[in-house]
Deep mutational scan, measured.
Amino acid sequence: STVKVRLGHLEVTLHNVSEEDVRELRELWKNGADEEDLRRWLEEWKK
């Protein structure tokens, strides 16, 4: 499914993403990950 995730002022649209992935991303964000960390996660996730 396609999910729009809003993290601060960063809005990311993920395609074919699982609930688990979204949860993981939100956890990262809650734990103080900055945009760099999130971008890195997204790069990994896209592979």
Rank of each mutant, 00 (worst) to 15 (best):
E11L: 12
K46G: 09
V17S: 02
N16H: 10
S1N: 14
T13N: 03
A33W: 06
H9I: 11
W41I: 03
E24C: 08
E36L: 11
W41Y: 02
E20S: 12
W45H: 09
L10A: 07
E43F: 11
L10S: 08
E43K: 12
E27Y: 07
L28T: 01
L7H: 02
W29M: 15
E20H: 11
L28D: 00
S1A: 14
S1E: 09
E19V: 09
W41G: 00
S18I: 03
E27G: 03
H9F: 11
E36A: 12
G32V: 03
E44L: 13
T2E: 05
E35G: 04
R26W: 15
D21I: 07
E24H: 11
H9L: 12
D34K: 12
K4R: 14
D34C: 04
E43L: 12
R23I: 09
E44D: 11
S1W: 08
L38A: 02
E11T: 13
E20Q: 13
L38I: 12
L28H: 02
R40L: 11
E44V: 07
V22I: 14
K47D: 05
D37E: 15
D34M: 08
E19W: 10
T13W: 12
G32L: 06
N31F: 04
V22N: 02
S18R: 10
W45I: 05
E19Y: 07
D34F: 06
G32I: 03
W29G: 03
A33Y: 05
T13A: 03
R23G: 06
R23K: 13
T2M: 10
E36N: 13
K46P: 03
G8K: 04
R23N: 14
H9P: 09
E20L: 07
V12D: 01
L25Y: 03
E27P: 00
W29P: 00
W41P: 00
E44Q: 14
E27F: 06
G32A: 05
W41A: 02
K47G: 10
K30V: 09
E44T: 11
V5G: 01
E36D: 13
T13Q: 04
S18V: 03
T2I: 10
E24Y: 13
R40Y: 06
R40D: 05
E44H: 14
E35I: 12
W29K: 05
K46R: 14
K47S: 11
T2F: 12
L25H: 00
W29T: 07
E36F: 10
R26D: 06
T13F: 09
K46N: 10
V3D: 01
L28R: 04
T13Y: 08
L10Y: 13
K4I: 15
W45T: 03
L42P: 00
D21M: 13
D21W: 15
L42G: 00
L14M: 06
H15E: 08
W45V: 06
T2K: 07
E11Q: 09
V5P: 00
K4M: 07
E44M: 13
L38H: 01
V22T: 04
V3P: 01
E20G: 07
S18M: 07
H9V: 12
L10D: 10
V5L: 15
L38C: 02
N31S: 13
V12P: 00
V17Y: 03
A33V: 09
E27K: 11
V17K: 01
A33Q: 04
E19S: 09
